[in-house]
Computed example of a mutant assay.
Amino acid sequence: MPAPSPKFARDPALMALGDAIRLLRKARGISQEELAHRSHVDRSYMSAVERGVQNPGIMIVVAIARAIGVSVAQLAAEAGL
């Protein structure tokens, strides 16, 4: 399991981003493991992102958005960011 990002763990913005990723992933019928694979990250890292305890870098966010089939702007809008 990756170490959480302690400075921002459970920040409302990260929680909203994780919720949006989970919602969009499930709406498309993609498992967390498959999304992690498509995004080139470990499944445990993806879990931490979805739970809002990991602060992903912009390129990881880009990879996740692409893997879900949305733009980063759409993902941010879904998260209310």
Rank of each mutant, 00 (worst) to 15 (best):
F8M: 04
A48I: 05
A77M: 14
V72E: 02
M59A: 01
H40W: 00
P6D: 01
I30W: 03
A73E: 10
M59Y: 13
L35T: 09
A73V: 10
R51A: 11
A27D: 15
R66M: 05
A20Q: 07
I21V: 15
A48H: 14
G29A: 12
M46E: 00
A65N: 04
Q74S: 15
G18C: 13
V49D: 05
R10V: 02
Q54G: 08
A3I: 11
D19P: 04
L24V: 08
A3V: 13
H40C: 11
S47K: 04
Q32E: 13
R10N: 15
M46Y: 01
S47G: 15
E34I: 11
R66I: 01
A36Y: 01
S44G: 09
R43K: 12
I21F: 10
K7R: 14
A20N: 05
M59K: 08
G69N: 06
I58K: 14
L35F: 13
A67L: 00
R25V: 10
S31D: 05
E78T: 15
M46C: 04
E34P: 02
R22W: 06
L24A: 06
F8T: 15
G69R: 03
P2T: 11
M1W: 04
P6Q: 02
L17C: 01
D19K: 15
M15F: 08
R28Y: 03
R28D: 04
S39P: 00
A63I: 01
Y45W: 03
H37D: 09
R22S: 13
I21T: 11
A20D: 12
R38S: 06
R25A: 05
A73L: 04
L14F: 03
A9Y: 00
L75N: 03
R25S: 07
A73H: 10
S71K: 04
R25E: 08
I30L: 15
L24P: 11
I64E: 00
E33T: 10
P12F: 10
V70M: 00
G29R: 05
E78C: 09
A9C: 02
A16S: 12
P12D: 03
A79C: 07
S47Y: 12
R51W: 04
H37C: 03
E33R: 10
M59T: 12
I68Y: 02
A3S: 15
P56F: 02
R25H: 04
A79R: 02
I60V: 14
Y45A: 10
A77V: 14
E34Y: 05
G18P: 14
H37E: 13
R43F: 00
L24C: 06
K26L: 13
A48V: 05
P4W: 12
E50F: 07
I58T: 14
A9Q: 13
L81M: 07
P6S: 05
I60T: 14
S71P: 09
G57H: 12
K7I: 09
A79L: 05
S47D: 09
V61D: 05
G80Q: 12
R25L: 07
G18Q: 12
L23T: 15
S31P: 08
